[in-house]
């Protein structure tokens, strides 16, 4: 049985058809072609699929696609404007906070949610907030530095 869903992704109204079992991550990647959100586990353990749902940070693999009806979704594809990267994206490049980069979309979405809630986090705040975002390449050191650098820049902007 297919269900038709109307939702908003990164500010744009979109519709898709899905099965009731399908996850929001499946719908974003498969139905809408937004492959920036990654599937590292499909069970909420890695955070690579992080998106915001009505402003809350969630794992899109743990949300049914049908639950997106009438909701506002934010993904990594919505971070940059046409001509400018988000300060977090720029900081990740400047601080070499990615190696393979597959965790990066989820971490950027999660870090953005953190800085909206807490513009001046301690390193420990950053580490605990991002504990659900696994990165196997970097050891997190440069990620924490990049988030702090973006936070400082956003505070002074």
């Amino acid at each position: 049985m297919s269900i038709s869903v109307s939702t908003t992704v990164n500010g744009d109204a979109v519709d898709f058809i899905c099965n009731p079992e399908e996850s929001l991550l499946d719908a974003l990647r498969g139905r809408l072609g937004l492959t920036g959100s990654k599937e590292g586990c499909g069970t909420g353990d890695c955070g690579a699929c992080s998106v915001t749902l009505n402003g809350r940070l969630v794992c899109s693999c743990l949300v049914l696609a049908v639950e997106a009806e009438g909701a506002e979704i934010g993904t990594v594809e919505g971070l940059a404007s046409a001509d400018r990267l988000h300060p977090l994206q720029q900081a990740f490049l400047d601080h070499a906070a990615l190696q393979c980069g597959v965790c990066t979309p989820g971490i950027l979405v999660a870090a953005k949610a953190l800085l909206e809630k807490n513009p001046d986090p301690s390193d420990e705040d950053v580490r605990y907030w991002l504990a659900g975002n696994l990165c196997r390449c970097t050891g997190y050191d440069k990620i924490v530095r990049a988030v702090q650098s973006a936070a400082a820049q956003m505070r002074s902007a």
Partner: peptide, 16 residues
């Protein structure tokens, strides 16, 4: 890095 912007914007294409 040359692939940086693709990787921070979600544009880089991985296996899946």
């Amino acid at each position: 890095r040359p692939d940086g912007i693709d990787k921070v914007t979600g544009r880089a294409l991985y296996g899946a």
